[in-house]
Nucleic acid binder design. Structure first.
Length: 529
DNA sequence: AAGAACACCAACCGCGTTCGG
DNA sequence: CCCGAACGCGGTTGGTGTTCT
């Protein structure tokens, strides 16, 4: 890394430079060590590096605040630790990530989320900062290109691992460890699918065509069709789109002609409709809802990460995913009688969250993990759904409520039938696969026959318990939750089933090709031109 | 050739956790 | 148990080089 102009060739700052640059604002690290002493900030010089290395050789790592006292280095302990950890410590591996490392990072991120330090532990010689920078760069690039953040292989693998580990969790792990266990960790892309369905499905009946296509594309790791964030110039997007793998794309195109139409369509219309590649005539009653659906959710049809760290869309921070809604709202979720009030309440909640509810939510969300809070809230959601559904169904009177409550009860029943709590990973992945399945039908206006849509349901479930459009439009999460509940018992035991929908969609040959090549395709698409 | 956009990297900052007094 | 210091982690910022228009 190049040093700044503040650094002389010998790497030592003049007194003037030091004075002008480096007035410690007292914010550094523990703060106390400096105590008003002038501490340097900014790029490290080689002289400083030498001092620090020398110090660590003599005193070892740790006690970083003592460095300044003992070595005369005008750096706060925090800065010293960082410099040592990221640049000076031995066995650091420099240079670009290898393909193996990239793959590992992606897999690890799918499992861990933004746990850079934990990820770094799996990559000898790499630092958390390095990995973080890599990921953030990559995520921006992929988001711009409208590509999925994870290859389908990773999703499936994570899913399979979640199946494999869910039963053997626990052991010596404490509660916190269990929470962070793979079985409960969700690739962000899954949440993205969740979000996509959240923001899109309920508003426009035709939308499933699109949303499910998007999920299908994600699920298949399609490198062809991409949702381009509206902020990207079309020209730019087109250029990036050409980086997709042609052969694979063609194959997918042939199997799913919808894709072709869709891509053309979205390229033309996405900029106008904020990612919704079709005309939207928002119901006046749901105007706010559309605002909600559009401005914060404009990225929901992109394949962006759901990580809160992603700065590409400023609205990301404003948008609360479903699992961040407070429990007090869950009753409404479960019993909403029509979309508009629900959506308005969502919008209102986002704009002025109830302090208490928000505080509760925040307390549940370890800063931006994007995964753990999801787990906690999903758990709470499901458990409170059990409670609220029955409560609300007895308290509220609208027919819609009754219908939805009954659906919830069915879900509850099936959930119990599952035997074990499925991880959100399973929850989400199965739902997105169910979307893939449903996408195989042309339009979701034409609701597939119950036998088709619920083909793999438990036999005891009556056909009239198939998800209703009312339910879909009321609570997209309910669709997903229901999908999970529908399929959970079916997919739970047999992992291979998970790929069958893909085979169904693509045909066996393409499916196997997809499985084998997904990584290469994925990495290729990540590399760009 | 110039400026904009982007990629990459290093470092800073704030917050949460841990630990010792 | 409480408090403060130290530490670690993750998010963010800012600088520089490269590529594109």
């Amino acid at each position: 890394m190049s040093h700044t102009k503040n650094e002389r060739e010998d790497g030592i700052l003049s007194e003037e430079q030091t004075e002008s640059l480096l007035i410690d604002d007292g914010n550094c690290g523990g703060g106390g060590a400096g105590g008003g002493v002038v501490l340097k900030k900014g790029p490290w010089t080689s002289a400083e590096d030498a001092i620090l290395i020398d110090y660590v050789k003599k005193h070892g790592e740790g006690n970083w605040n003592a460095v300044q006292k003992h070595s005369g280095l005008f750096r706060c302990g925090k800065s010293c630790r960082l410099r040592w950890a990221n640049h000076l410590r031995p066995n650091l591996k420099k240079g670009a990530f290898t393909q193996e490392e990239e793959q590992l990072i992606i897999e690890l991120h799918a499992k861990m989320g933004n746990k850079w330090a934990r990820m770094a532990a799996h990559l000898p010689g790499r630092t958390d900062n390095e990995i973080k920078n890599y990921w953030n760069t990559r995520i921006k690039r992929r988001q711009r290109a409208g590509l999925p953040l994870y290859p389908p292989e990773v999703c499936l693998q994570a899913l399979q691992e979640s199946h494999g580990t869910s039963a053997v969790n626990g052991g010596d792990k404490g509660p916190h460890d269990i929470l962070q266990n793979n079985s409960y960790e969700i690739p962000d892309v899954i949440f993205d699918s969740l979000k996509a369905s959240q923001n899109v499905l309920p508003y426009v009946p035709e939308l499933p065509d699109i949303s499910s296509s998007s999920m299908l594309m994600k699920g298949l790791g399609s490198q062809y069709c991409s949702f381009m964030p509206p902020t990207i110039h079309r020209q730019k997007r087109l250029r990036e789109a050409t980086t997709f793998v042609p052969g694979y794309s063609a194959a997918v195109k042939n199997e799913c002609p919808l894709f072709e139409l869709f891509q053309d369509d979205i390229l033309d219309k996405a900029p106008r409709s904020f990612g919704m590649p079709f005309p939207i005539e928002p119901d006046p009653a749901t105007k706010n809802s559309f605002q909600f659906g559009v401005f914060p959710g404009s990225h929901t049809l992109s394949n962006g990460n759901f990580s809160a760290s992603e700065p590409a869309f400023e609205a990301v921070k404003l948008e609360l995913p479903s699992f961040q809604y407070p429990e007090t709202e869950l009753g409404n979720w479960g019993t909403c009688s029509s979309p508009p009030p629900l959506l308005e309440s969502v919008d209102a909640f986002i704009q002025s969250p109830p302090p208490t509810s928000r505080a509760e939510t925040d307390s549940l969300s370890p800063r931006n993990s994007g995964l753990l809070d999801a787990l906690i809230h999903e758990a709470k959601t499901l458990s409170s759904a059990k409670n609220h559904a029955s409560d609300k169904s007895s308290n509220s009177a609208t027919p819609g409520d009754i219908a939805e409550s009954s659906t919830f009860n069915i879900c509850e029943t099936e959930w119990k039938n599952c035997g074990e709590p499925l991880s959100p990973m399973v929850y989400s992945a199965t739902s997105f696969l169910s979307e893939c399945l449903s996408a195989s039908g042309s339009s979701l206006d034409e609701q597939p026959p119950a036998e088709t849509f619920t083909e793999s349901r438990v036999k005891s479930e009556p056909a009239d318990h198939v998800l209703t459009p009312e339910l879909d439009s009321c609570r997209p999460d309910t669709l997903i939750a229901s999908s999970w509940l529908e399929h959970g018992s079916c997919y739970d035991k047999d992992q291979t089933v998970m790929t069958d929908p893909i085979a169904t969609l693509l045909g066996d040959d393409l499916s196997s090709e997809y499985k084998n090549d997904s990584w290469n395709i994925y990495l290729k698409s990540s590399m760009g031109p």
